[in-house]
Each structure stands twice: as structure tokens, then as C-alpha cells.
Amino acid sequence: MKKCPNCGNQINDDALFCTFCGSRFAQQESFDGYAAQPQVVMVAPYDHTREFDAKDISDNKVYCMVIYLMGVIGIIIGLLAAQSSPYVAFHVRQALKFTVVDTLLGMAALVLFWTFLIPILAGIAFVVLYVVRIICFVQICQGKALEPAIIRSFGFLK
């Protein structure tokens, strides 16, 4: 039995991944008769880049950029322009999560406008969400498919 370098739990010697934390181990070939130690490949649970074909990513990057830059209109453009692309569909789902959070913040600010504090906090939250959208835009430029930083922590949007 060996220990997982990520969580420390005991796992089988021939395991390709940890059954407790999900860390994957890349098997290396033996060198001159000596078995190489397995290399840990850490994949973040919110990184979905490996799920998509590289050609799909390169062909549809621009549509995904538009999705985050233009809000609801960008979502509609993304849906119409690349209907059969799983990469675009992933980013449409993430942008819809932004739309839901924006709508909830707007409703809270409108209902509680008389408190003065809630609209100010909602305004700050809108600015933070806009910065996260820009981060998503940069990640798309790099060809990645990551769930947005703050949005992925909301359990009701899973």
C-alpha cells in the first residue's frame, strides 16, 4: 500500500487515482528495470479544458469571448453561432450563471433600495462580477474552460 501525496490516505500500489480525493497518478514506464514512482497530476475539479477537443476550442474561441463581453445578447449570439459546439455550450452555461446572479443582485437592490447600504453593496458586487467576467475572457484567450471563480462557489447554481 502507498500513500496519496495529496490527501495522505492509503491506496493500492497499482491505483491510477486516489479513491478519496480523486488525484490522478500518471504511470511512468520503468527505466532500466527500476520502476518509476507515479507522478501526481493534479486536475482542479472546476477545470474542464480536457473535456473539449482542441479544434473545437480554437474554432469557437471568439464566440465564447462574445458571450462574456456582451451579456444576454452574447449568450444569444453564442447559441445561434455555434449550436453544435460543446465548448460554446459550456461557456453559455457559465454566462447564464452570471446572468442569474446579476438578476438576483438587481432585485435585492431594487427591493431594499431604501436601506442605502444594500444598493451600495450590490454595486460593489456588480463590479466584482464584471472583473470575474474579464478573467473568464482572458482564460478563453488561453484556450481554457474553467468555471468562473466566484460563481462556482454558489451551490444553488450547480
Rank of each mutant, 00 (worst) to 15 (best):
T99D: 13
Q94W: 02
V111R: 14
P119C: 13
T103A: 11
L117S: 05
I118R: 10
L112C: 14
V100G: 13
V100F: 07
V100Q: 07
L121C: 15
L121S: 08
L105F: 12
M107K: 12
T115V: 05
P119M: 11
G106L: 03
I120Y: 10
Q94K: 07
F98V: 04
G106I: 07
L96P: 04
T115R: 01
A109K: 02
I120A: 12
L104I: 02
T99A: 14
I120V: 04
T115F: 02
T103V: 08
L104C: 12
D102Q: 14
T99C: 14
V100P: 15
L121T: 10
L121M: 11
L105Y: 04
L112D: 09
L117M: 09
A108S: 06
F98E: 09
A95T: 09
G123W: 04
R93D: 09
L96F: 11
F98R: 01
T115N: 05
A95Y: 04
I120H: 06
L112P: 13
G106Q: 09
F116G: 08
Q94D: 00
G106V: 03
M107Q: 08
P119G: 12
L121Y: 06
V111D: 15
V100I: 08
A122C: 09
A108K: 02
W114C: 08
F116S: 01
A122G: 06
L105R: 03
F113H: 13
T115Y: 06
T99L: 13
L112Y: 14
A122E: 11
F116L: 02
W114E: 09
V111L: 15
K97T: 12
V111Y: 15
D102F: 12
R93G: 04
I120K: 00
L112V: 06
G106N: 06
A109W: 10
L104N: 07
A95R: 01
R93E: 02
P119A: 11
I118E: 08
V101S: 05
A109P: 08
L105E: 02
V100S: 11
M107W: 14
